[in-house]
Amino acid sequence: MNAILIAVALLGTIGAASAAILYLVGQKFKVIEDPLIEQVEDILPGANCGGCGFPGCRGFASAVVRAETMDGLFCPVGGQETMDKIASLLGKTSPTTSKKIAVVRCNGTCEYRPQTSIYDGAPSCAIEAALYGGETDCFFGCLGLGDCVEACLFDAIHINPQTLLPEVNEDKCTACGACVKACPKDIIELRKQGPKSRRIFVSCVNEDKGAIARKACEVACIGCSKCVQVCAFDAITIKNNVAYIDDDKCRLCRKCVPVCPTNSIWELNFPPRKEKTSASPKEEIKKTV
């Protein structure tokens, strides 16, 4: 009985002493911080993805609290809603930024882009890209080893095992830009999500001349500029033999899509076309994939 009492007393004393020390040290080294930072951090998604350009959500929160205006500060994951909440908390106004989404600009599935060599190194796009152009004769296209998948913290991008190309899950993508940075071929781009998620873009980045690009991949942009001619809004430009659609200028009229001889312009989430224009060639491709 005595032994138990001694043990309890001893442990109790040690515990109390430790608690006292902890409390005193905690008081001494207490960091006095703007309580707003804590509150802003609570509003943020807490993914610590770095998509905003700051190291983690706390970094962003303290930047927002300290900044004079909220220009240039945007949490791509939380989106406009979160930014508005923060703005009302801080009594600032947040500039409206349209929501973006990651878009994969390569359509060279195995079917359209024949394999010409076998890569046998470590399974990393960055390592393969440093070694040579890739397993096909298109030196600009997707390597399919999934550096973007590794980089995504939101499980929003996956390699389709049939096409060996990455596909973005629109519901999960937060436009943090991690995949854009991870892709050694600069294939992934953040584009405006568009009304009802409707988007039009050139699904190719091949800068080779038309003949070489076409030989390497049936669905490569050959820089023929037919799309440039039909575009009424000056939204399409050709640079380095590849067309690019400016999403600020594009009005989603879809005229460029059917004129593309290699079906390299994609339209997403549009209703089916009326009978007289016939189904877009793109739709056919999608079916075959």
């Binding site: 190194g121 470590a122 990393s124 960055a126 390592i127 440093a130």
Partner: peptide
């Protein structure tokens, strides 16, 4: 193991 593949990447 592909030691040098990764080290070369990391070195860069």
């Amino acid at each position: 193991r592909p030691l040098l593949d990764y080290i070369r990447l990391g070195k860069g």
